[in-house]
């Protein structure tokens, strides 16, 4: 809901230079803000996951999770997202070394992997829809699409941020500390990945 906060964190240089290092705790305002935001996001996804867990068995005589899910497909897309966390780490490390070329390379790869994941999700959603499970069909379907949809939106926002960052870095328009900006996107990205780790297990793998 408040992904706007991310943008301030990504690019704010209100507090670089003397301010950040002069802060009384010695830590950066941006990073602290990002971690607070992620702490808050835990309660957002927690609520959506709980709603799903409560309603996953309630599909009347319609199709339920056990018949619907395509585990091999989801396993592959989960793997893709997981590996995008690795490429993200490589981007952050490259940015720390002030290696713009590799930073951009790994950011772009991360964005691509993310887009691949979103693509798989879109495919999955349409497939479910054709099997007669739409957003409004049952309590199960509403809560499934809401949860995974929210996650998908988070990934998409992440992809946009990654690609925007690539554009900004290659035009050399980064205002403030570049490495920190990349690290900030990284934190967001890993968090989205970690949420998927939970969703993958609780929603897909654990039998209802």
């Amino acid at each position: 809901m408040a992904d706007i906060a991310v943008h301030e964190s990504v690019t704010s240089h209100d507090d670089h230079g003397p301010a950040a290092h002069g802060s009384i705790t010695g830590i950066s305002n941006n990073k602290l803000a990002m971690w607070l935001f992620l702490g808050s996001e835990c309660l957002l996804f927690g609520g959506l996951i709980s709603t799903y867990m409560l309603y996953r068995g309630r599909h009347g005589s319609g199709v339920g999770p056990a018949q619907l899910f395509d585990i091999p497909l989801t396993s592959v897309s989960s793997f893709v997202l997981l590996m995008s966390s690795l490429t993200m780490v490589l981007a952050v490390n490259a940015a720390k070394r002030k290696d713009d070329r590799n930073t951009n390379l790994w950011l772009a790869v991360t964005g691509l992997l993310g887009a691949l994941f979103v693509g798989a999700q879109v495919y999955e959603f349409t497939a479910f829809y054709h099997e007669g499970v739409g957003f409004t069909t049952s309590l199960f379907s509403s809560s499934f699409f809401t949860l995974t949809g929210f996650h998908g939106v988070h990934v998409s926002i992440g992809v946009i941020m990654l690609l925007a960052m690539v554009a900004i870095i290659s035009r050399n328009k980064v205002a403030g500390d570049k490495a920190e900006a990349v690290e900030m996107i990284g934190l967001y990205w890993h968090f989205v990945d970690v949420v998927w780790v939970v969703i993958f297990t609780l929603v897909y793998l654990i039998p209802a």
Binding site: M1, L36, G39, S40, E41, L43, L44, G47, L48, T51, Y55, R58, G60, F135, T136, T137, S138, L139, S141, S142, S143, T146, F150
Partner: peptide
Amino acid sequence: LFALPVITVALFLLSFQRNFGAAFFDVDK
């Protein structure tokens, strides 16, 4: 910081139900 996301979830569920036909509070279902 920690309470608002909870109401956010609730509000999303309600507006999805009212505006897009989701089933969250549909007792019939």
